[in-house]
């Protein structure tokens, strides 16, 4: 049984930008791609810059992969998998995300 928690309303997200949510004591970067059906959630902590900033990064695509580029040193992270595209050894924690009745909800990735 998943445990979904509402963090904000869809209207709080703008296309192609991110926000940071406090979710069970963790900083989660939440992004909207081109539309509200296109949401992503990964850890907000940038393991390269060692600061909680990823929600403030630019969203881009390479081929089909949608990624966020860190605002500090521009490393790119696949928003679906959390995998860093510039360093195979590094990846971000990801979270499940959905829209329910205009509420944006997060849930821990089931193991």
């Amino acid at each position: 049984m998943s445990n979904w928690k509402t963090i904000c309303s869809v209207a709080d997200l703008k296309p192609s930008t991110g926000v940071c949510a406090l979710f069970e004591g963790e900083q989660v970067a939440v992004f909207m791609g081109a539309s509200k059906n296109d949401l992503y959630a990964v850890s907000n902590y940038d393991p390269f810059g060692k600061a909680s900033v990823l929600s403030r990064g630019l969203i881009g695509s390479v081929g089909e992969t949608v990624y966020v580029a860190s605002p500090l040193y521009k490393q790119r992270f696949d928003l679906m998998t959390g995998q860093c595209l510039d360093d195979t050894d590094v990846s971000l924690k990801t979270y499940q995300i959905k829209v329910d009745n205009n509420d944006v909800q997060l849930c821990r990735e089931s193991a």
């Binding site: 296309p15 192609s16 930008t17 600061a51 900033v53 630019l58 605002p71």
Partner: peptide
């Protein structure tokens, strides 16, 4: 503006210069 905000780089998007700790 909504249509421009996603284009702005690290500093422009919050109208300030981001330092190493964010």
């Amino acid at each position: 503006e909504d249509k421009h905000i996603g284009l702005q780089d690290t500093n422009d998007i919050f109208l300030g210069n981001m330092q190493k700790d964010g």
